[in-house]
């Protein structure tokens, strides 16, 4: 089985090849099985069939920027997100009960260390999933992104929020970034 059928003269194949579709087929099958709630031959075979049809009918654009995926780091990121969800919920609850109408927030400019769309997507989802913070704007041209953070009341609080945003970016890059991007993040290039 060739891994990249009908490659165009100077470029990538127009549609993702079989191997690229495999993760999506696996994922869709898993969702299908979970929806049925029973792990039987019928649900698995049905899931694979449905996944095949779906990936045929709705082809994804071919991945132009292969990103490294480090399973252990991804697991670490998931565990951190779970911890962060609990810790930040407590933080937001404190803001709600303690300050309420007098709660303050801040919008930060944070250096962006990756040009990959997929890293940006994961980063935005991770930051926005965490209570109290959200991504407002990505400006890859300027190499920055903007995060909103609920809570900071003074300069020290703003710096803490900035460090948290950078920390999240480092964790995402540890899971999905190239070594070069990780080096830039570790060097703290462009940080205030």
């Amino acid at each position: 089985m060739s891994d990249s059928p009908n490659g165009r003269p100077n470029g990538r194949p127009a549609r993702a090849g079989w191997r690229d579709r495999l993760p999506r087929i696996g994922w869709l099958t898993l969702v299908w099985v979970l929806l049925w709630g029973t792990f039987t031959v019928q649900t698995v075979v049905g899931g694979v069939l449905v996944a095949l049809v779906v990936t045929l009918l709705f082809p994804m654009p071919p991945a132009t920027d292969p990103i490294p995926v480090r399973p252990l780091r991804v697991l670490g990121l998931v565990v951190f997100l779970a911890y962060d969800l609990v810790a930040s919920t407590l933080g937001v609850s404190w803001q709600i009960l303690r300050y309420g109408p007098r709660a303050r927030g801040t919008i930060l400019e944070v250096p962006l260390y990756s040009s990959s769309d997929r890293v940006a997507t994961v980063l935005a989802s991770a930051v926005t999933l965490s209570p109290g913070t959200a991504v407002l704007h990505f400006a890859p041209d300027q190499g920055v992104w903007y995060a909103y953070s609920l809570g900071p009341r003074d300069e020290a609080g703003v710096e803490r929020a900035r460090r948290q945003a950078l920390d999240m970016q480092r964790r995402v890059l540890a899971a999905f970034g190239t070594p070069e991007e990780q080096a830039r993040a570790a060097a703290g290039e462009g940080e205030r």
Binding site: L85, V86, S88, T89, V92, S93, Q95, I96, L97, G100, P101, R102, A103, G105, L129, S130, P131, G132, T133, A134, Y148, L150
Partner: peptide, 26 residues
């Protein structure tokens, strides 16, 4: 419940958004 209280008490659109979406997730 805390999320709902935050929705009422917090002062701005962005901060209310935090209260409306996040504590509910947990």
């Amino acid at each position: 419940l805390l999320g709902a209280i935050g929705l009422v008490r917090l002062p701005s659109m962005l901060s209310r958004l935090q209260a409306a979406t996040k504590p509910q997730t947990l």
